[in-house]
Amino acid sequence: MQTQIEIHTAPLNIQACTDWIMSPDSGGIDVFIGTVRNVTKGRAVLKLEFEAYNKMAINEIKKITKQAFEKWPVQKVLVHHRTGTLQIGEIPVIIAVSAAHRAAAFDACRYIIDSLKQTVPIWKKEFFEDGEVWVAAHP
């Protein structure tokens, strides 16, 4: 039961994540890579800015990974999140989960990204040609 949770201002490194998650007793690894999309509801997005309340974000991610270990027989869990300005195609988040069998890895990985989006204090601002908006701030 190992976890690696990090928040970086520098670009995330996919290779470093998959290297860490590999282990001889794993039968499968599920990796989710979030990427910056160039459009939101038909409007062209120029770039995104991510801000985190780092200490609390790490705490909240720990709670989620702990729940994942309780719910599924997974072996290692990695969550890396980026902050700062990200261009189209860049990677704000990587989640990797290893398990003896694939079903647990798939389920836990999805659970972690879905929960992260609901409770972890990280914010995203979208920049458009004609303005900018904090995502989800207003109803």
Partner: peptide, 24 residues
């Protein structure tokens, strides 16, 4: 930690306003 409305605030607490989150 997320606080309940009824939770007490003490002088040395670290207090933060958390608007709707949108990470990932």
């Amino acid at each position: 930690e997320y606080a309940e409305d009824s939770g007490l605030i003490a002088e040395r607490d670290e207090v933060a306003i958390i608007p709707p989150v949108s990470g990932g």
